[in-house]
C-alpha cells in the first residue's frame, strides 16, 4: 500500500506492457511464495497460538480468551495510548522538519555532496546505538545536565528535568526524530529533484506568495511520497521494541515491550497473551494504513491536495 502510493503513477497510468502468465509467475512466484509462507504463515500461526492452540492440547481449547484478557486489562488502553502518542508525535515532528529540510536543501545545497553524505549517516546508525547515546546526553546526569551545571544553571542532577524514562517519552521521541528525518527527507528530495525548478519559477512569475507556492505547487508533488514515508515511519515506531524498552518508563509500557515481556514470561499462560498483543499491534497498524488510504482517496476525489 505504501508502495502503491509511492509508485501510484506507474499503476494508475499503467505501463501498457503485458507479458505471459508463465513469465509473470516465474518472476513473482519465488518472492510471493516466500512472503506468503514466512509472513502470512507467521501471522496465521501466531493467531492459532493466540487463540490457544498447541499441539499438546489440540484444537479443543480454542477461543478468544487470551484476546479478551488483554483487551480487558486496564493497562491496555494506557499502553495503546502511549504507543499511539509516541508513533504519531515522532512521525509528525519528523515530517515537518523534513519538509523544511528538503526544501532548504533543494534551494541552497542541491549540489552539496557533503551535506547529503552527512545526512546519510543517521541512516546507518542502529536505533539501539542512538538510544544509548541519547541516554548519555539527556539523562539527569547526562552531558546536557553537566553542561548546565558547569555554567551554574543547575546545582544537582535532581534539578534537571527528566528527559529519559520520562512520562512524555522525550528520550524516545528524540531517538526516533533523529533517525527518521533523513529517511523522510531523502524520500522527499527524490521527488523534488524530478520536479525541477521550472514549476516554481512559473509560480514566481505569476506572483504567487510563498505559502501559495508551497500549498499549490510543492505539496501536491510531494504528497504521495510524504504520505508513504510517514506511514512507514508511523508503522515502524508503533511496532518497535528496543527504544521504548531502553528509554521508556517503568509503567505504563509501550505495546511492543508489553508483548515481549509477556511472551518471554516464565508463566505459561502469559505467552499466548504476548502473541495476542503482537497481533493486535499488527492489526492496528494495518487498520491505520487503510484509514489513511481512504482519507487520501476521498481527498484526491474532491480535488484536495492532501
Amino acid at each position: 500500500m505504501t508502495g502503491s502510493s509511492l509508485h501510484s503513477t506507474a499503476i494508475d497510468a499503467g505501463t501498457g506492457r503485458k507479458t505471459s502468465l508463465l513469465q509473470l509467475s516465474g518472476l513473482l512466484g519465488p518472492a510471493l511464495a516466500t512472503v506468503l509462507v514466512l509472513f502470512g504463515g507467521g501471522l496465521a500461526l501466531g493467531l492459532l497460538q493466540a487463540l490457544g492452540y498447541l499441539p499438546a492440547t489440540g484444537l479443543a481449547s480454542i477461543g478468544l480468551q487470551h484476546f479478551t484478557r488483554v483487551l480487558q486489562d486496564p493497562d491496555f488502553s494506557k499502553s495503546l495510548f502511549l504507543t499511539l502518542y509516541i508513533a504519531a508525535t515522532s512521525t509528525l515532528i519528523a515530517a515537518v522538519i523534513s519538509i523544511f529540510l528538503a526544501l532548504s536543501l533543494m534551494r541552497w545545497a542541491a549540489d552539496s555532496r557533503t551535506v547529503h553524505f552527512i545526512l546519510q549517516i543517521p541512516l546507518t546508525v542502529p536505533h539501539l546505538v542512538i538510544a544509548i547515546s541519547v541516554t548519555l546526553l539527556l539523562a539527569p546526569a547526562g552531558m546536557l545536565s553537566r553542561l548546565l551545571s558547569s555554567v551554574a544553571i543547575i546545582q544537582t542532577p535532581a534539578e534537571f528535568p527528566l528527559l529519559v524514562n520520562d512520562g512524555w517519552g522525550i528520550g524516545i521521541l528524540t531517538v526516533y526524530i533523529w533517525k527518521e528525518i533523513p529517511f523522510i527527507t531523502f524520500m522527499l528530495l527524490s521527488v523534488l529533484k524530478n520536479m525541477g525548478t521550472e514549476l516554481l519559477e512559473a509560480g514566481a512569475t505569476l506572483n504567487a506568495s510563498r505559502l501559495q507556492r508551497f500549498s499549490h505547487i510543492i505539496l501536491p508533488v510531494i504528497a504521495p511520497s510524504l504520505g508513504a514515508a510517514c506511514l512507514i515511519v508511523f508503522a515502524f515506531t508503533f511496532g518497535a521494541f528496543e527504544v521504548p524498552y531502553l528509554l521508556g518508563r517503568t509503567y505504563p509500557l509501550a505495546l511492543p515491550v508489553w508483548a515481549y515481556k509477556n511472551y518471554s514470561d516464565i508463566d505459561l499462560l502469559a505467552r499466548p497473551e504476548g502473541i495476542a498483543i503482537g497481533l493486535i499491534i499488527a492489526a492496528i497498524v494495518i487498520i491505520a494504513i487503510f484509514l489513511s488510504q481512504i482519507v487520501l482517496h476521498f481527498g484526491r476525489k474532491r480535488g484536495l491536495t492532501i
Binding site: 505504501t2 508502495g3 512507514i232 518497535a240 497481533l279 494504513i289
Partner: peptide
C-alpha cells in the same frame, strides 16, 4: 499482489517472529 509483497514493511517483525 503488490499489496501482499509490501505489507510486511509496515507490520512489525515482532508479530511475525512470535508466531513463527
Amino acid at each position: 499482489v503488490s499489496l501482499l509483497l509490501i505489507l510486511p514493511i509496515i507490520v512489525p517483525p515482532l508479530s511475525v517472529s512470535m508466531g513463527l
